[in-house]
């Protein structure tokens, strides 16, 4: 048997505090990707389950930006959908301002305070609606204005806020470029005066110069309105630019979560280190890079134990059999890795 360690349950890794707007506890989602019943019977195949997210726990403080990074299939978008209430979790809960959004409570008042910005600004705007109608919809839905004059006024303000002309409201989405469309999406998200925005890859469909405009805009709006962001991205440089804290996801689990500066200066989890090494060196600083090995395994049939062990340079026996639990390092960070844990036991951190 292994040495008994003072295990910290992941739910306690981050004690909930008053300043937390969002608390996510042991959130999991399983998708059934089996073939139809008859095929399973004829081909004698068992059900196939895809564990998209397993035991994700984190909290987001007010006015904070928490980013989730990971490669495709890591489950970051699934987390985003469960946090806004678009996808029901298989287990775990999401509390926003203390209210469990999957607990059957009346959420009408809470819904207004949560909004989402999606990746593809071409798909997330109704092509048959004028822009002013798109932006006015949440205002109408939540009854935030008393008459149509007030709505028009508010839509004009919102368009200006995101750097468009109030007259642009009369146009249709196809008359705008990708960056302008993403501005419209942001205006729509802000129209219900939300506190919490979930942004799922908001700039990955945009060109770099436009991406810079949108990222700057999002930061300005955060300062202006005191917004809290959950920011989903695969781009580490973008995340570094936007986030206060970063969670790194691999095959459905958050393997490390740390304040941005710590994560980039002293990455702990071997996967985080590998990801950082893989980022192209634009500054041509000649920083040493390790070669990235291997591929992301199939999430339907993930490796036993730590899902990263087949690619991990530090893997040892225990990694192959036992899933590492997140262990708190500070009140705002944790890492889930047997090798890091072992290193700390032999060489206690100062």
């Amino acid at each position: 048997m292994n040495i008994a360690l003072p295990a910290v349950p992941s739910s306690l890794a981050e004690p909930a505090t008053m300043s937390d707007l969002v608390q996510v506890r042991e959130l999991s989602r399983v998708f059934d990707v089996s073939k139809p019943w008859l095929n399973r019977v004829i081909e004698r195949e068992p059900r196939k389950l895809l564990k998209a997210v397993t035991d994700a726990s984190f909290s987001i403080r007010r006015r904070e930006t928490l980013a989730l990074v990971g490669e495709s299939g890591s489950g970051k978008s699934t987390v985003a959908k469960m946090v806004v209430g678009l996808l029901q979790p298989t287990a775990g809960d999401v509390r926003i301002d203390g209210k469990n959004i999957w607990g059957g409570e009346d959420l009408t008042l809470l819904r207004r305070r949560i909004q989402m910005i999606f990746q593809d600004p071409y798909a997330s705007l109704n092509p048959r609606w004028r822009v002013d109608a798109i932006i006015a919809d949440p205002i109408r839905a939540f009854g935030l204005a008393k008459d149509s004059a007030e709505i028009d006024h508010r839509v004009g303000e919102l368009l200006q806020l995101v750097g468009l002309d109030p007259l642009d409201g009369r146009k249709y989405p196809h008359e705008f470029s990708g960056g302008q469309r993403q501005r419209i999406c942001i205006a729509r998200a802000l129209s219900s005066k939300p506190e919490f925005l979930v942004c799922d890859e908001p700039t990955s469909a945009l060109d770099v110069s436009v991406q810079a405009q949108i990222l700057n805009l999002m930061r300005d709006l955060q300062d202006q309105f005191g917004l809290t962001y959950l920011f989903i991205s695969h781009n580490l440089a973008v995340v570094r630019h936007m986030a206060d804290r970063i969670g790194v996801m691999y095959l459905g689990r958050i393997v490390e979560l740390a304040p941005t500066e710590h994560l980039f200066r002293t990455p702990q989890h071997p996967y985080t280190r590998m990801l950082l090494d893989a980022v192209p060196d634009l500054a041509m600083s000649g920083r040493p890079r390790k070669k990235v090995e291997g591929e992301i395994p199939n999430p339907i049939d993930p490796p036993k134990g730590c899902a990263f062990h087949p690619r991990c340079p530090l893997a040892f026996d225990r990694c192959k059999s036992e899933v590492p639990l997140p262990r708190a390092r500070t009140s705002a960070s944790f890492v889930a890795c047997h090798a890091v844990e072992r290193a700390e036991l032999t060489q206690p951190a100062a």
Binding site: A212, N235, T260
Partner: peptide, 20 residues
Amino acid sequence: GSIPTLEMGGTRLTQIPGSM
């Protein structure tokens, strides 16, 4: 200037106004 890099941290990105 508009490309976020790992080295630069949280500084504001340079913006080119408008689009192509």
